[in-house]
Design a protein around this nucleic acid. Structure first.
Lengths: 136, 136
DNA sequence: CGGAATCCTGAGAGATACTG
DNA sequence: CAGTATCTCTCAGGATTCCG
């Protein structure tokens, strides 16, 4: 890509692809919800409530709605008693996984003292036995 | 990696590598500053001020300080008049680039209507003529 | 030029209580 | 179970001014 194009993409905030992704994923707890759906296969409101530290029903409810509006997830409501609702990740939501993996790889390598009890730095590949996924 | 290990890594927020990366990079404008340093080779306070839409001196100042504390950048002050200060990306800071590229790839593919005038979806590889960088 | 110091505001976080 | 509905309240962030 020519330099001019890079500059165009970056300098105008509303066109910048990095900025756009940050608008979609940058709010508190959004990536945590996605992480739990993608990596722990969780689907339900109270599963998120139980496993995402510090979240509350209001914020979770708001985030799930935003994520639905942004096409990251869909909401499936079953007519049962007690009521059951499941959140399913869309293709667009699944595509976030490479970003999450790069984020994980980053801390695994650069912040081992936070992530590991033995405080030893590793690569993602060393730790997971495979390379990170990435978008083409 | 065994499932148990994944669960351990994720469920305890303070040990989760994704969460840790979010703590380092998740605040507003941090990735924009890094983006401008890495991709536009910018180094100076007023360059960031000019090219990051919506930022102000207070927030920029705070973010630069946080980024220095987190080891993403170093601050070089020259004894000159007029005073000159340059911010240089560290190795740890440069390692953020794969995350930024995945974020860019995501919007280039999934939000072309926001990113491109012709609104046509592309892969990062199609657009940039190379694959995304990634952490091992 | 590269900030620091103030003051000010509102969005959003958090707690609690309640409901279909 | 899966949420609303309020209410409070903090603090991130905006505007402005000043300083070495």
């Amino acid at each position: 890509m020519k330099e001019k194009e890079v500059e165009h993409l970056i300098q105008d905030t509303k066109w910048c692809p990095i900025d756009q992704t940050f608008r979609i994923l940058g709010k508190k707890f959004t990536i945590h919800i996605l992480r739990n759906m993608l990596l722990l296969k969780q689907k339900r409101f109270n599963e998120f409530m139980d496993d995402i530290e510090g979240i509350n029903t209001k914020i979770l409810s708001i985030r799930l709605k935003e994520m639905e509006e942004n096409g990251l997830i869909t909401r499936k409501s079953f007519n049962e008693t007690p009521p059951r609702v499941e959140y399913v990740v869309t293709t667009k939501g699944k595509s976030v996984e490479p970003i999450l993996e790069q984020m994980a790889a980053y801390s695994i390598f650069h912040y081992p003292q936070v992530v590991f009890k033995d405080k030893k730095s590793r690569t993602f590949e060393e730790f997971m036995g495979r390379k990170t996924k990435r978008l083409k």
